[in-house]
Design a protein around this nucleic acid. Sequence first.
DNA 1: TTGAATTAGTTGCATAACTAACTATATGCC
DNA 2: GGCATATAGTTAGTTATGCAACTAATTCAA
Lengths: 146, 146
Amino acid sequence: MPNNQFKRGELYSVINGMATTAVARRLQKNFRNAGLEITIEQWSVLYHLWKEDGLSQQELGNRTFRDKASITRLIDNIEKLGLVERIASKEDRRVNLVYLTDAAKPLQEKTYELANQTMQEALQGISKEEIEIVKNVFQRVYENSK
Amino acid sequence: MPNNQFKRGELYSVINGMATTAVARRLQKNFRNAGLEITIEQWSVLYHLWKEDGLSQQELGNRTFRDKASITRLIDNIEKLGLVERIASKEDRRVNLVYLTDAAKPLQEKTYELANQTMQEALQGISKEEIEIVKNVFQRVYENSK
DNA sequence: TTGAATTAGTTGCATAACTAACTATATGCC
DNA sequence: GGCATATAGTTAGTTATGCAACTAATTCAA
């Protein structure tokens, strides 16, 4: 049994999402404690729209690493909350452009603060150099695996 | 808007699971292509049982970073596939011990091979030192966030 | 210019996640 | 011993994920 071959990787905890889900859960909890009704998945979409409003569903899928079916339903739910609306593109009628509503704007600062604080706690005691390495490794792992 | 404070972290892609889900999806695809019917979530449970059979659901939850409700249903599904069985503990009748069946044994070598190969591809061009740093950072992020 | 191939989005189906409320068993303290 | 508390597991309800099959709009090529 090639059990020992696993040793090198031992990134199996990565597959299981150990650290990443711990941070995500913590952030979700902080949202809830602050009375925010959104999920982190919904927030991850809003985050990209705050940076650039009016993205297509396709583009949102690319930026959040989700397939188009997942985006469709995620937008459905965010739309139900009244935070975004779909507007059909004039140039290409297949495309839905997703726009933030006025109701979404007040959320930005509050969620940024919570996310920032959560990340600072998560990254306590970790140097900039280490973070750079992790980011860089992740980028390469992603490229190797997609 | 404290947008710039985000720069330091930029581990937001981590929250979104970019690299980790890419590896997981790839492994899932490799399982499917090899005719294996199990999901990676199910595999992550079997992986721990192959290392140590007869764990309680509680312990499986700890080792795979899942809550007890998730483990309950995951074991339900693995049990339906005939790969494990629950046996009530004699010492503590609240506890279910989870045991691999004979049907699970042939899967071990095949899935280890696929997982090994998938990880090697994912980690191509990444040094042992970098992997050590990532593992170490993850452990600390996890401790900071749990 | 029309018919084939591509692209954006939706829907059906199955699995999985978390929270909260619940049952049953164990423990611990008076 | 007996009651309060804690622990292991299950269930209900909601959200999210991926794949595959589908529709509608667009592009490309003969």
